[in-house]
Every structure is written in structure tokens, then in C-alpha cells.
Design a protein around this nucleic acid. Structure first.
Lengths: 233, 233
DNA sequence: TCAAAAGTGTTCTCCCTACACCCATGG
DNA sequence: CCATGGGTGTAGGGAGAACACTTTTGA
């Protein structure tokens, strides 16, 4: 039983295995974080890796990636987009495995521990250990993609709570783009886009003056999407 | 022999088949064109489809797509980029097939008839028949991707001959972006980027005045890539 | 009363846009 | 000599970047 594995799915030509791997980003208010899983089985046992798994024969890769996001974070309908396929012949020592990589953006406040929460851990993006397989490469591609996408879609809001301050938003953009903005110009530009609605609520982040709370306005976003807006930085 | 197909590649779990499909764009001076193949076998026999085929067990999807580009056009090292995976469960009636789609840009002058040139045909992008499988969707995604990429990379030059006129370049951009530019502003913007080198050669396109020929300057492109340039339109 | 965070306004510059003029050529 | 295509220059407007002042609050 242990040594004989039944191989009952047969094909005329060799077929690769197909997995999805998911780069899950969060934002703690200062730094971008990524969710990693400590591997419990060979290969790369004990090493950190992206959450992922084999695509079932009757599910799309999108569904597979969403299933993994749900398992690891308890989040059901968050932002998720396909990155690309990674297909190096030797990327998995067990057999030929092609992976379809995704990236997801989650609000850390909504995240609940998943099935194997003990093995899951958030790492700051600039302090990630060496990963299993080719997951270093996948993570790098995901981050570059996020940096590009943020110019076209207001996906930054997927990483913030419902209500947020202008400073939080700015720190998020600075963390993603790796630059520093003038506080006043950033405020002007954001408000000029018309994507934000100021609420009458405030919050005390520092022991100093209270900060206004803003809300993302999905309606005006849908308008903007028609015209195809671009965010210059 | 005919009815019994030997299925000798067996796995513990079901594996999908993996293919690549390639959207090959060309430019005839006026309109964008795409290369399609008339299918010779079921399913969708007689219908037009994107060039594509099964990924061999020992080649990457990139290599597979390049192999197909070479087979169909005789072009060895042209521009090619991965689009994304398409994985709908029923997208192929034979078995579960996941395809990794690519898009390529070729200079029509360099294209030679491929292995099955009789079945290959260039179609103007705005006059493409209904395609086999989900290839309509793949084609649409490829075109949207091309339209986006052209803002960041000077990939337009991959579609033009070595020497080209400013008018040709403008018509290419107009065809891709579906807009009209002012002739003089387009000229200024392009020259301002520093990507073009004016040669001392001219060409007579119309029976009127000769037009200067330009060349794409790869050196200054490499410089620009560092700073991350953006092409506004 | 002072330091630090937060809200808001002004100026300057550059780039994009709209538009006009001149040159060359063939019918 | 005129119609057409091609090369280049100029004025105006709008958006981003640089930058300063005021308000609030706790120590």
C-alpha cells in the first residue's frame, strides 16, 4: 500500500500536472505584507512557500486560486487576478508541474486564520526568506504587476479598511511604489480624481490632531473605468 | 490499431492537457492583421483558429509558443509575450485542456509561409470570422493587452520594417489605439522621446514629396527602460 | 507655549493641444 | 500653377511639482 501507488488516470501523451499559486498581499499601515506557508512535506519541507495546490479536473484555475484564498484567509470574494503561467521544466522535482500564478489583495482586518494557520505567516515584503520552488520569482513578478496595476485601477483600496485616512492611503501608495510623495499634492491629486468621499467621522491616529476618514466611492470608479483613467505618479 | 489508442502515460490523479495558442499580429501599413489557421481535424473542422499545439513534456510553454511561431512564419526570435492561461472546463470537447496564450508581433516583410501555409491566412483585425474554441476571447484579450503595452514599451517597432516613415508609425499607433493623432504633434512627441534616429534616406510613398526614413534606436530605448518611461496618448 | 500632525492655497513650469505656414513634386 | 503630401514652429491652457501658512491638541 505504501510503496504501490495506484495510477489509474492514463493518457496517450504525457500530461503535466497543473497547480495554482497565490501571492496574497496585505497592508499593515506601514509595510506591504505577503502570506506564506511553511511546507510540511517534501520537497522543500520546512521552507516557506506561496499558498497553492493542484487544479482539480473540474474547476477553472480561477476557482482553484479562489479556493486557496478562502482556505488560507477566510476571504470569499476579495480582489484576485491572474499573473501568468510558470512552466520551467525542472521547477518541481517530483514531476512536470506547470503553475498558474495569481495575486490577491486582502484587508488584513478581515483575515481569519485558515486551515493550517499554524503554518501560515505574514512577512513584510522586504523581509521575505528564500522560498521553495521558483516562488521567489513568482513573488517578484507579482509585486511588479501590483506596481503597474495601481496606476490603472484603484486596487489600493482593496488593501485598506472601509474607512481610512489620507495618510494611510499615501503610505500605502508609497509602500507599493517605493517613492515619497508631497503630502499636499497627494491629497489634491486623490481628491481631484473623485474616487474618494470624505465622511464626517474622524480618527485619532497620533496623539495630535484628529484625521478625517475617507471612503472609496465605487460609483465614480465605475464612471472612470469607462473613460479609462490613468493615475500619474 | 485504428480503434484502440494506447494510453501509456498514467498518473495518480487526473491531469489536464496543456497547450499554447499564439495571437500573431502583423501590420500591412494600414490595418492590424492576425494570422489564423483553418482547422483540418475535429473538433471545429474547417473553422479558423489561432495557431497552437500541445506543450511537450520537456519544453517550457515559452519554447512551445516560439516553436509554433517559427513553424507558421519562419520567424525565429521575434517579439513574443505571454498573455495568460485560459482554463474553462469545457473549452475543448475532447478532454480537459488548459491553454497558455501568447501574443507575437512580426514584420510582415519577414514572414515566410509555414508548414501548412495553405491553411494559414492573414485577417484584418476588424474582419475576423468566428473562431474555434474560445479563441475569440483570447484574441480580444490579446488586442487589449497590445493596446496597453504600447504605452510602456516601444513594441510598435516590432511591427514595422527596419526603416519606416513617420506616417507609417503614426498609422500603426492609430490602428492599435483606434484614435486619430495630429500629424505634427505626433511627430514632435515621437522625436522628443529620443527613440528614433532620422536616416538620410528617403522614400517616395506618394507621387508627391519624398518622406524621410527613420530607424528605431535600441540604445536609447535601453536607457529609457531604466527610468521607466510612459508614452502618453 | 511649543512640537507635531493635519487641512488648505498659490505659483511656476512644462507638456500637451490646437492650429498655420512653408517646401517639394507631379499632373 | 495648384493640389497634395511632408516638414517645422507658435500660442494657450491645464495639470503636476515645489512650497508656506494655519489649526488642533497634548505634553
Amino acid at each position: 500500500m505504501e510503496t504501490t501507488i495506484e495510477k489509474k488516470y492514463c493518457y496517450q501523451y504525457p500530461h503535466p500536472a497543473v497547480t495554482t499559486d497565490c501571492v496574497i498581499f496585505g497592508f499593515d499601515g506601514t509595510r506591504l505584507q505577503v502570506l506564506l506557508i511553511e511546507r510540511g512535506i517534501e520537497p522543500y519541507v520546512g521552507r516557506w512557500a506561496l499558498p497553492g495546490g493542484f487544479v482539480r479536473i473540474d474547476e477553472t484555475t480561477d476557482a482553484c486560486a479562489r479556493r486557496e484564498l478562502l482556505e488560507e484567509t477566510g476571504i470569499d470574494n476579495g480582489f484576485m487576478a491572474q499573473l501568468q503561467a510558470f512552466s520551467d521544466v525542472d521547477r518541481d522535482p517530483r514531476e512536470r508541474v506547470i503553475t498558474i500564478a495569481y495575486y490577491a489583495l486582502v484587508k488584513l482586518q478581515q483575515v481569519r486564520g485558515g486551515d493550517d494557520a499554524a503554518r501560515a505567516h505574514w512577512f513584510p515584503l522586504d523581509d521575505v526568506p528564500k522560498l521553495a520552488f521558483d516562488h521567489d520569482l513568482i513573488l517578484r513578478v507579482a509585486f511588479e504587476r501590483l506596481r503597474r496595476d495601481i496606476h490603472f485601477k484603484p486596487i489600493g483600496f482593496e488593501l485598506l479598511p472601509e474607512l481610512f485616512t489620507m495618510r494611510q492611503l499615501q503610505q500605502l501608495y508609497e509602500a507599493i511604489l517605493g517613492v515619497h510623495f508631497d503630502r499636499r499634492n497627494f491629497h489634491k491629486k486623490m481628491m481631484h480624481l473623485g474616487l474618494l468621499t470624505a465622511t464626517d467621522e474622524t480618527i485619532r491616529q497620533s496623539p495630535k490632531r484628529d484625521a478625517m476618514l475617507y471612503r472609496f466611492n465605487r460609483d465614480s470608479y465605475n464612471e472612470l473605468k469607462q473613460n479609462g483613467f490613468r493615475l500619474e505618479f
